[in-house]
């Protein structure tokens, strides 16, 4: 089948970008979306044009590196599917497909469809962890964790840090990402000691990174390839409120070294 692509091309973060149209010919329905782009790129190189830069690595939906907005929807809009796992059989011959990068101030474009998501790393650096150094751990089974708690923590921990939640949100808010990390660690007994301080510091780092605020539209949940629930956002809101009441902010400020 043949499809027309309307692709965002941008040389670097300083140069403004624009849409360019390409014809993708002889596409086989069993191809993945990124394999289709591979084919287009091979053609472009043969014609002496620079290939489209796009991110991908594992191509099995777990590394979180691939990132493209397909027809207005991050990852293309199939339940629980990253764009690397999206297949061309979901498109029809003659379709026109618009491909864009994640768009957010906090995720500046590096080139074409590749964006800089280091803002997520900075959030984790602030407090997305349990402070335990190598060797400090007690015997693993001395911490008993009810199965339901472990499973819920795992639901949140499944986040792959792809940034689709930010890309989908009309406010480019990172709440789902931050809430997932807060819930993963805050649900587990090991994470209780730092629970409120963590919530406070995560939110501070998120705000400093320039993400928007959450207006509860739930677009993030709809595009999340790991189907992470917005209920974790309510949990973050709750933890943050407790943090304010307890004065965790002062505690966080005084213990930062």
């Amino acid at each position: 089948m043949n499809v027309t692509l309307r692709v965002w091309r941008q040389k670097n973060s300083k140069t403004p970008g624009r849409f360019v149209e390409y014809q993708a010919k002889n596409i086989i329905p069993d191809m993945s979306f990124l394999e289709m782009l591979d084919v287009v790129n091979e053609d472009l190189i043969a014609r002496g044009e620079e290939p489209i830069a796009f991110d991908s690595d594992c191509r099995e939906g777990i590394c979180g590196k691939c990132s493209a907005v397909v027809n207005g929807v991050p990852h293309g809009g199939h339940r629980g599917t990253t764009v690397c796992q999206l297949h061309m059989r979901h498109f029809k011959d003659g379709d026109r497909i618009v491909i864009e990068p994640w768009r957010a101030t906090a995720f500046p474009v590096i080139k074409d469809l590749v964006v800089d998501r280091s803002a997520f790393d900075r959030i984790i650096q602030a407090s997305g962890f349990i402070s335990v150094s190598t060797g400090q751990a007690p015997e693993a089974n001395s911490i008993s964790i009810p199965r339901v708690v472990a499973e819920r923590a795992m639901d949140a921990a499944a986040c792959i840090g792809c940034g689709a939640c930010v890309a989908a949100c009309k406010n480019a808010s990172a709440m789902l990402f931050v809430a997932a990390k807060n819930a993963h660690l805050g649900l587990l007994p090991q994470g209780q000691a730092e629970r409120y301080r963590r919530a406070f510091t995560l939110v501070k780092a998120m705000d400093e990174a320039g993400f928007g605020s959450c207006t509860n539209t739930n677009s993030c949940e709809a595009v999340c390839p790991k189907e992470i629930s917005v209920e974790f956002i309510a949990r973050l809101n709750r933890d943050y409120a407790v943090a304010l009441l307890r004065g965790s902010g002062r505690e966080a400020a005084s213990s930062a070294d």
């Binding site: 190598t134 693993a140 008993s144 923590a153």
Partner: peptide, 22 residues
């Protein structure tokens, strides 16, 4: 054996039995 201890302490949500054991 130390690896499992370390990972649990870090918050790796390993699968659990209903009784709470790994």
């Amino acid at each position: 054996v130390n690896i499992i201890d370390q990972c649990v302490a870090q918050g790796v949500p390993f699968a659990r039995e209903y009784g709470g054991a790994l």
